[in-house]
Design a binder for these strands. Structure first.
Lengths: 209, 209
DNA sequence: GTCTATAAGAAGATAGAC
DNA sequence: GTCTATCTTCTTATAGAC
């Protein structure tokens, strides 16, 4: 059974992710959990301690999940062989899967929203947001592209530029879905077109078709 | 000379944009302006009224500035002729100019940050963020691409997909610069590569080079 | 581990003198 | 139009009974 502590973490995450730290009172968290405000202090020393625990635990959970999916954020070059021979359909399926995970998983989505709302107030949290959702994925994809044979048509796109061109539109659509859930349908269509277009433009050129 | 009212708007914008509505007290705004908290109420009925006035006035200012720059957000098709004959260097210069405006103009940047911090709490503000910084620019660029001759190599990229592929990486880098000002140097390099790469891949194909 | 009672302070906002 | 003084409510947090 879920411990009270975990229930606090879960409910507070949801509240912080929607309204931001300062707009949420400890009473509100307590009510969502089903206890009185003072009882929270049997589990956490302060409101800030709840926030910090969420950041720490959700970051850890995020990394665990990423590892389980098979995303070695740090070692994209090892996966390059897989990608070099991947088909367009498989690529789209994979992107759609990752998009769902980013958008709908309570941990990944909640953490991203919390960090988004705190990014300008606390530089550390802003840096964490950049690392988890920008730098790590971008670096991973950069390594994938770097490990592929150079394009044969002489356009000479750098791996980082390719990674940016591939990932940015997907992340862009994700951010819109974050605040407009009903947009997901349209986003899925655009992702499919984007992956198709990118694949055709760069992948097939790389392989010399 | 700047009126007290305008000074309140200006200082409150800066505070709200950095810490969010709930983290800023009226006393804090008053101190930044150089008056006592109760004096604020001679200019605005409530703290919320200050926030609302900022949103309204900054949105108006943003639109005025956009019109002045020559961005008819609503009528991109008229500008298509200009873009059809634009050079790569001119395009990059224009993108860099718009990037600077988005990133450094107190109105445009402050409004974007305020909306970012309120996007999940208030759906109207989230929608405004989407409209001003996502939908309008995207639609403008979509019209530009739509008014161009169709690609001759049969890739058949839709105008919306092209607009997404062009704009998303730029916006993506902008968001990172928002929380990491020192990243701007790197961002400028990547923008140049992106525009170069995009231009080469799509523009020159479109014109049959 | 949860409760009630309560402290101690900060918040948004108003009244009225100047 | 700004000030001091004040009100009311809400906030985080603690004390101590059960």
């Amino acid at each position: 059974m879920e411990s009270t502590r975990d229930k606090i973490i879960r409910q507070a995450l949801q509240l912080f992710a929607q309204k931001g730290y300062h707009a949420v009172s400890v009473q509100e968290i307590a009510r969502a959990v089903g206890i009185r405000a003072p009882s929270l202090y049997n589990h956490f020393a302060s409101k800030q301690a709840i926030f910090d625990a969420i950041i720490d635990e959700m970051t850890e959970t995020y990394h665990k999940q990423a590892a389980q999916i098979g995303l070695g954020w740090q070692s994209g070059s090892q996966d390059a062989a897989v990608f070099a021979s991947i088909g367009k359909e498989q690529l789209l399926t994979m992107v759609n899967g990752l998009f769902s995970w980013f958008l709908h998983d309570p941990t990944v989505s909640g953490l991203r929203r919390m960090l988004t709302l705190s990014q300008f107030e606390d530089k550390e949290l802003g840096d964490l947001l950049t690392k988890l959702y920008i730098e790590d994925p971008l670096y991973y994809q950069e390594q994938l592209f770097a490990a592929m044979p150079p394009p044969k048509n002489g356009t000479g796109h750098s791996p980082r530029t390719l990674a940016l061109a591939f990932y940015a539109p997907i992340y862009f659509l994700l951010l819109r879905c974050d605040r407009e859930p009903e947009y997901e349908v349209e986003a899925r269509t655009l992702i499919a077109e984007h992956v198709h277009s990118f694949s055709k433009t760069f992948f097939e050129q790389v392989r010399g078709n």
